[in-house]
Design a protein around this nucleic acid. Structure first.
Length: 410
DNA sequence: GAGAATGATTTAAT
DNA sequence: ATTAAATCATTCTC
């Protein structure tokens, strides 16, 4: 640093004294860094009290003004970082950075429990919520920590600068700039925090919400119930919405899981009927007794109104043509009263079951494995169930006499 | 550990 | 929206 020469007063005592003073001060300033803290502190105080200090200070200000050091940095207005914005948006969307919703893990778990969800799904979900809350808490405490550290550091630096501004010229703009730099540094740390939080959330999501990863086989009981329904409604294994809901309730799974199960079952059954024959027989036999009882009761119930004996489905084939349908007969005889529908639907499922038993006991000797007596079952030539398209159309006028009716049981 | 079984997802058709 | 069909990813079984 070079001082501009003060010309003019050479030769006077006063001038000599000033020179001496300035030389002194400069020397002290130059050596201040070489001294211990205490010494420096003392010297600083001495310098601040020096009678020449204001003059020297104004000179320094002037120089600084000229060199334009303080101007730089003003153009460093931070444009919003797109990556940071993306992270912020994601954290907000995931409910990590936004306002607390659901009131934390305890409330989430309580809500899940209250919603009647004894199902795995809600348990898993509350587990997910709990983990998310954990992440959220860590995120917030860390964020707060960084914010606090940032503030502390900023005030510290500002105090330092303010103190220094007594000995060297520091414009408010410079302080501002310094604060800006600190904030940027800290926000870059925060961005890392946000990034790792995002990663954690993504991992959590893939762990908990990707159902394929958490696939659990249904309980034996649930499979039993589903299979019972399937095989007792083999003529039309398309449960109505209500039936699905009921099955879901019985099996402690969701309706969509029931739909999935039936979708899988239908396609796999159709693909390889032989493989499922044993199972079909098993379930058919399982419900045969109750079915027989129920059919008997139903028939008896309707005997007053139906003088003719229904043409039972004993044709030995599940092909729909000629597969006399008990319900059909009853319906045509009784008219489509509400009670009639109910009974008819129930009977229908039982007839399905009985057909299995009949087929089984009737014997079959098809060497082709799956394609025995009831193999084509209710599958039409196209490989589809006969009335798959209109599962609930009990009174559909387009249906032929042999058509099978929906499973609107219960 | 390989292969079967199984629940879930995706795609395309309706 | 629902379904069939293909496919994926996990779990079960041997």
């Amino acid at each position: 640093m070079s001082l501009p020469p003060h010309g003019g007063h050479d030769g006077t005592d006063q001038g000599d004294g000033r020179k001496q003073d300035i030389g002194d001060i400069l020397h002290q300033i130059m050596t201040i860094t070489d001294q211990s803290l205490d010494e420096a502190q003392a010297k600083k105080h001495a310098l601040n009290c020096h009678r020449m200090k204001p003059a020297l200070f104004s000179v320094l200000c002037e120089i600084k003004e000229k060199t334009g050091l303080s101007i730089r940095g003003a153009q460093e207005e931070d444009p919003p970082d797109p990556q940071l914005m993306r992270l912020d948006n994601m954290l907000l969307a995931e409910g990590v950075s936004g306002p607390e919703k659901g009131g934390g893990s305890a409330a989430a778990a309580a809500a899940a429990a209250a919603s009647g969800g004894s199902s795995d799904n809600s348990i898993e979900h509350s587990d997910y919520r709990a983990k998310l809350t954990q992440i959220r808490q860590i995120y917030h405490t860390e964020l707060e920590k960084y914010e606090q550290a940032c503030n502390e550091f900023t005030t510290h630096v500002m105090n330092l600068l303010r103190e220094q501004s007594r000995t060297r010229p520091i414009s408010p703009k410079e302080i501002e700039r310094m604060v800006g730099i600190i904030h940027r540094k800290f926000s870059s740390i925060q961005m890392q925090l946000k990034q790792s939080t995002c990663e954690a959330v993504m991992i959590l999501r893939s762990r908990f919400l990707d159902a394929r990863r958490k696939r659990r086989n249904f309980s034996k009981q649930a499979t039993e119930i589903l299979n019972e329904y399937f095989y007792s409604h083999l003529s039309n294994p398309y449960p109505s919405e209500e039936a699905k809901e009921e099955l879901a309730k019985k099996c402690s799974i969701t309706v969509s899981q029931v739909s999935n199960w039936f979708g899988n079952k239908r396609i796999r059954y159709k693909k390889n009927i032989g493989k499922f024959q044993e199972e079909a027989n098993l379930y058919a036999a399982k419900t045969a007794v109750t079915a027989a009882h129920a059919v008997a009761a139903a028939v008896q119930n309707n005997q007053t109104n139906s003088p003719t004996t229904p043409n039972s489905g004993s044709s030995g084939s599940f092909n729909l043509p000629n597969s006399g349908d008990m319900f059909m007969n009853m319906q045509s005889l009784n008219g489509d009263t509400y009670q009639g529908s109910q009974v008819g639907a129930n009977v229908q499922s039982q007839v399905d079951t009985l057909r299995h038993v009949i087929n089984q006991t009737g014997g079959y000797n098809d060497g082709l494995g799956g394609n025995s007596l009831y193999s084509p079952h209710n599958l039409n030539a196209n490989g589809g169930w006969q009335d798959a398209a209109t599962p609930s159309s009990v009174t559909s006028p387009t249906e032929g006499p042999g058509s099978v009716h929906s499973d609107t049981s219960n």
